[in-house]
Amino acid sequence: MGRLSVDLCGIELDNPIIPASGTFGYGYEFAELYDINVLGTFSFKGTTLQPRYGNPTPRIAETPSGMLNAVGLQNPGVEKVIAEELPKLKRCFHKPVMANISGFSIEEYEAVSALLDKEEQVGWLEVNISCPNVHGGAMSFGTDPESAAAVTRAVKAVTRKPVIVKLTPNVTDICEIARACEAAGADGLSLINTLLCMRIDLKTKRPLLANGTGGLSGPALLPLAVRMVYQVARAVRIPVVGLGGVSRAEDVLELMLAGATAVQVGAANLVDPFACKKIIEALPEVMDRCGIDRLTDIIGQAAR
């Protein structure tokens, strides 16, 4: 294993850097720009059973040190993802990919998971129970420990791939949800999804996003992610994937010190399409500067 490599639920990553779902499409827009095989892996666009157009526009608003999005899980549906997107991905990405799935009922999570379980290139299932931009699904499962556990159990029952449950920060006690997912069989957790927010247009005097509310991402989230990863990593024994506002190699180290085994990079990809590549290239030098030999040595060090 190299200096940067980490083990995520039994699969070795060359480095801990994972573009976050919804900021990297199905990979090939970025594959036109650089060899995406330099990544640890990436989490593809949140996939549901049926095709979803998502919310009306505007779906995007800027904030101090970040942005809101209310895309609303636009995706072509799992069948088309398997038939069209994964074959295209296979040509440009030769590592196991993280399949991000979402749903509006436990049965839907189960059905999408069962279909993606059969796909060889899928390494992990990342179960999104935390999207704030759709009604009647996603986040409502992630804000209640029993619902979170029920989704986790249902997905675990239909797949042998590692299941990583993606948690929302829009809760009073994220550790309670984390423990419920662990008890239900989750192999790992990723956190945090976006924070539910709003902006209002001074000209129209109405919310800027057509959806009203949207999820905050970008550097503004980093300290919240660090705090929550720190708390959750101490509350569970399963690996934690940290994300929220990461844009530099230093941020990666901070989340790993807090307890993250791997780190996702989200909004940064949208403003600098080369962000993940630059972070991976910068890591050895920043580690040298911080006196870090191997990344695995620092996971959770801040809490020890």
């Binding site: 900021t23 827009e29 157009y53 998502g54 779906r59 999005n69 636009q74 949208l270």
Partner: peptide
């Protein structure tokens, strides 16, 4: 349209057309 990335990654600027969903940016 208000855009997130401008190069087709974020689905922030999608519209419906006769020939399917299109990203204004890409």
């Amino acid at each position: 349209e208000r855009m997130g990335c401008g190069f087709g990654a974020c689905m922030g600027c999608t519209c419906k057309t006769v020939s399917g969903w299109k990203r204004i940016c890409r």
